[in-house]
Design a protein around this nucleic acid. Structure first.
Lengths: 339, 339
DNA sequence: GTATTTCATGTTAGCGCTAACATTGCGGGT
DNA sequence: ACCCGCAATGTTAGCGCTAACATGAAATAC
């Protein structure tokens, strides 16, 4: 009694089929595809012809299973609704793609518990490394990384605790834009914050430090809301802020979405920007340069963070040391009409 | 002579370890994880305890290899720089995630040749299905899908050739917004187009049809540029258009980026919008409602397209018929101040 | 001229999981 | 008492690939 044959996966052409067609053994085909320099040119040629003729596609799962290397990297980001992370992904993709690595994208929705679930789920793919957004993660998270000796690179911020970080100082950036507002003569500078993820809170810290330094700190000028940021929310927060504190003469918004919404509402209400109220945003998204008046903001090297982090991770995966534990890619003030 | 042991992948805990710890056979563990109703509650309980105790994570590659099902879906999009596709991805993710499927994202950079390469590369993962953007793809592309009997759903547009499509009529949408401009009294309506992917060209067809219908078609009012669209480009195209045809009294921009750039430049040049020149965009991105003046545009159901397409694909993968060959999710004119 | 190294290729034995079939035990019909 | 059917669990044999070792031939050394 012969059993039912199993369903063949994929196109059904296996490495052995190619080997037979080329008159060699399977391992030779494997080597032609993975370490071509180990195979003589003639055989290499013959094998490649067979590969093309049969339209052979190697099976990634078989390879992962046999070699214990998946050539896959897990990327965990907090949101898919934010251009910031898109740009970062684009940078990551460009590097991984070129290295033959694939990326698995997990969206944690700004929730560290969900992030932990994602890590657990994606571990099934045996990723060779992980790219993370931000420095703070659920407690078991780092445990898992350690226990599995999974290389990880942290993006967007800096830390000097030995973890490999690629980003810039959120705190310094927040302080720098606040100082710019101070220098332009404003004294009652408010802060609009939404989402309140760790990066926003660090920008807030920077804002506070700069005001402290200038003796202008006023806790009544901070408006914080944990719900997701949007232009609509920026408009609403602006109204609430001015209603509560009509003396406020400048606003640092924790990101451009809020700032653009606030700016638009000022236009509608006839509030002169920047004379009566200066406004600054964060990230330098595309509309910042094109709204009316154009928005002063902080340009962040998102794409570079992604590509650099990916390169560092590939080094770690290969067992090399990273170029540096932390890489500070800086930020740039974009001074425009709104301040 | 005993060989060197192989490097264990992942944490090294396998299904057999769990089976031993629970005092059952490996297949029982497999069933507890995949078809729990086939296992008695007591055993199920015992196995789950062992799974937790050992922090067992099943190997996706082993499962894929043994079962010839990867529970992975390939998503091919033309760009990672465009919010439109992000929103679509978010919709897809929500459905696939809930169904235990993982998505692989390929970015074709608006290039059908590169799209074909991506398909070839990602076939190594033996995806169970493919989600595609648009209807036109490189010739060998559809061949590969057919030869492998890979279920596919086409997003963003409609076709009545039997392919499973989820989207809306780009052409009708282009015609509808053009008719709105006609109804508001404009007669020399221009078209600004960038990127010139198939969707832009269909919107252009709709625009032409509507003008033809009204007897207002004027080929000298079309400005097309194949480079990627951006606000900067919208501003530049606006200037070029008005220089060439100062009599132009309305502009339909193929997307909101162009429109917002054009709008901003009008503000700078003191051109009255909509009196002297009406402007309409496409997609209803967030800034459209918040720029000055607010932008008339076409709202597109991007997230719904993603989630609906993912649901259809899951049906196809399960061997069921799709609810309908095409699903028209429509569009909505957002009439605002710029027209 | 033999010992030693190198290089190119092959053989074998899994990687961790699940499909297919096999076995066991139990309740119910007659 | 017997047989049947069904439910719960087990055994076996791969899925397609590559690590490790083996082999044989050519190149090099002394």
């Amino acid at each position: 009694m012969s059993r039912k044959p199993r369903i063949r996966s994929g196109s059904g052409v296996t490495m052995h089929d190619v080997a037979r067609a080329a008159g060699v053994s399977a391992i030779t085909v494997s080597r032609v595809l993975n370490q071509p320099q180990q195979v003589s040119p003639q055989l290499r040629e013959k094998v490649m012809q067979a590969v093309d003729a049969l339209a052979y596609v190697p099976s990634r799962s078989a390879r992962t299973l046999a070699s214990a290397r998946s050539r896959t990297v897990l990327v965990l980001i907090p949101s898919l609704d934010n251009t910031v992370f898109l740009d970062t992904l684009a940078g990551i993709e460009s590097v991984l793609d070129a290295a033959g690595y694939q990326m698995l994208i997990g969206n944690s929705h700004y929730d560290s518990e969900q992030e932990l679930q994602l890590l657990r789920a994606y571990l099934q793919h045996q990723p060779d490394g992980v790219l993370l957004t931000g420095l703070t993660h659920a407690a078991p998270f780092e445990d898992i990384l350690r226990r599995r000796a999974l290389p990880a690179v942290y993006m967007m911020d800096l830390a000097d605790d030995g973890r490999c970080c690629v980003g810039f100082s959120q705190e310094n950036a927040g302080a720098a834009i606040t100082r710019h507002l101070l220098e332009s003569g404003k004294r009652r500078i408010g802060f609009l914050g939404a989402q309140l993820d760790e990066r926003v809170l660090k920008r807030l810290d920077g804002y506070r430090a700069a005001l402290e330094e200038a003796g202008c700190r006023d806790a009544g000028l901070e408006w914080l809301d944990p719900s997701p940021s949007s232009m609509r929310m920026g408009a609403a927060m602006l109204e609430a802020a001015l209603a509560a504190r009509p003396d406020c003469d400048a606003l640092f918004c924790c990101n451009d979405d809020l700032a653009i919404g606030a700016l638009a509402r000022c236009q509608q209400l006839g509030i002169a920007v920047p004379e009566r109220l200066a406004i600054a945003g964060f990230n330098d998204l595309q509309p910042a340069a094109w709204c009316t008046p154009s928005l002063t903001t902080v340009a962040t090297p998102r794409r570079a963070i992604g590509s650099h982090a990916a390169r560092q991770l590939l080094r770690l995966i290969a067992g090399e040391a990273p170029e540096a534990a932390q890489t500070d890619l800086g930020f740039q003030l974009m001074l425009r009409r709104s301040s």
